[in-house]
C-alpha cells in the first residue's frame, strides 16, 4: 500500500474539525478578554454611582469619557500626546544610534570596553529617577532635559546588551572572514552586524518602552506640557479624570509602539 505524505488538496474531516476547534478557542479567549474589560468598567461606574467609592478621588468611566471628549474637541489632548511621543521617539533614536556606535567602539577596542564596563554596569543599575532632578539643575526645565532623561533610562543597558550580542558572534564566522582575508571592518559589516539584527530588534522593543518611562519621569519634574505633566498637574489640582485618562493613553501608546516594532521584527526576522 502507498502512503501519501503530501497534504491532500481537500483537508480531511478531522483536520477541518481540528482547525475549527482552534479558531473557536481563539475567539473564546478574545470574548473573555473583552468581557473582563467591560465588566471592570461597569463595576467601576456602578461603584461610583452607588457611592461605594468616592468618585472625586477614584473618578469613573463616564467622567473619563467626558474629559476625553472635551480635550479632543479643544485639541489639547493631541498636543500633549504629540509632545510626549516626540520626546520619546527622539530619545529612542538617540539611544539606538548612540548605543550601536558605542558598542561598536567597544567591540573594536577590547581594552576600552574592559575599562568602561564596570562604570556602565553601575550607571545601568542606578535608579534613573534619581538622576532626573540633577539633570534639571544642570540643563534647565526644558525639552532637552526630558530627552536626556529618556536616554539615561535606556542607553546604558542598551550598550551592554548590544555589546554582549557582538561578542557572542560565532567565532568561526569571524574566522571565515579572516580566511578570506577580510579586515576588522569587513568582519563588522558582513558578520557581526547582520547576525545581530534579531538581538538589536528585541533590544529596540525594550528600549522604546524605557524611553517612554524616561520621558514621563522627566515631564513629572520639568515640563509644562506632555502626558507626564498632565498627570502631575491633574493630581495636584485633583482633576483625577485628567490623571487617569493620561495613564490610559500612556498604556495605549506603549502598546502601539511595541506592536509597531514587533511587526518590524516579524518582517525582518525571516531573513536572519
Amino acid at each position: 500500500m502507498k502512503t501519501k505524505i503530501s497534504t491532500p488538496d481537500v483537508p480531511s474531516l478531522e483536520q477541518q474539525q481540528y482547525v475549527k476547534k482552534i479558531h473557536r478557542n481563539h475567539l473564546l479567549i478574545r470574548i473573555y478578554q473583552i468581557l473582563l474589560f467591560a465588566g471592570f468598567l461597569t463595576l467601576w461606574e456602578v461603584s461610583a454611582r452607588q457611592h461605594w467609592i468616592n468618585d472625586f478621588i477614584f473618578c469613573c468611566p463616564s467622567k473619563l469619557a467626558q474629559t476625553l471628549i472635551t480635550m479632543t474637541s479643544d485639541g489639547s489632548l493631541f498636543h500633549h500626546i504629540g509632545i510626549t511621543l516626540y520626546e520619546t521617539l527622539i530619545g529612542f533614536v538617540i539611544v539606538i544610534i548612540g548605543s550601536l556606535l558605542i558598542a561598536t567602539l567597544f567591540w573594536w577596542n577590547e581594552t576600552l570596553s574592559k575599562v568602561l564596563e564596570p562604570y556602565l554596569v553601575i550607571l545601568n543599575a542606578l535608579p534613573k529617577s534619581a538622576l532626573a532632578p540633577v539633570l534639571i539643575v544642570w540643563l534647565g526645565a526644558n525639552k532637552t532635559t526630558i530627552i536626556v532623561c529618556a536616554c539615561s533610562v535606556a542607553i546604558f543597558g542598551s550598550i551592554l546588551n548590544i555589546y554582549t550580542g557582538f561578542t557572542n558572534v560565532d567565532s568561526d564566522k569571524v574566522k571565515l572572514i579572516e580566511t578570506l582575508h577580510g579586515n576588522r571592518f569587513q568582519c563588522l559589516r558582513l558578520v557581526v552586524l547582520p547576525s545581530n539584527v534579531p538581538n538589536i530588534l528585541s533590544i529596540m522593543k525594550v528600549n522604546i518602552g524605557l524611553c517612554l518611562v524616561g520621558v514621563v519621569i522627566g515631564e513629572f519634574l520639568a515640563a509644562r506640557e506632555g502626558l507626564g505633566y498632565l498627570i502631575i498637574y491633574g493630581s495636584q489640582t485633583f482633576k483625577m479624570s485628567h490623571v487617569l485618562l493620561s495613564i490610559l493613553i500612556l498604556c495605549v501608546i506603549a502598546m502601539l509602539l511595541y506592536l509597531i516594532l514587533q511587526q518590524l521584527e516579524k518582517k525582518l526576522i525571516e531573513y536572519f
Binding site: D172, K173, L190, P194, S195, Y271, F272
Partner: peptide, 8 residues
C-alpha cells in the same frame, strides 16, 4: 568544519 554560509 561547518559550512558557515551566512543565513541572511
Amino acid at each position: 568544519q561547518k559550512d558557515h554560509l551566512l543565513e541572511w
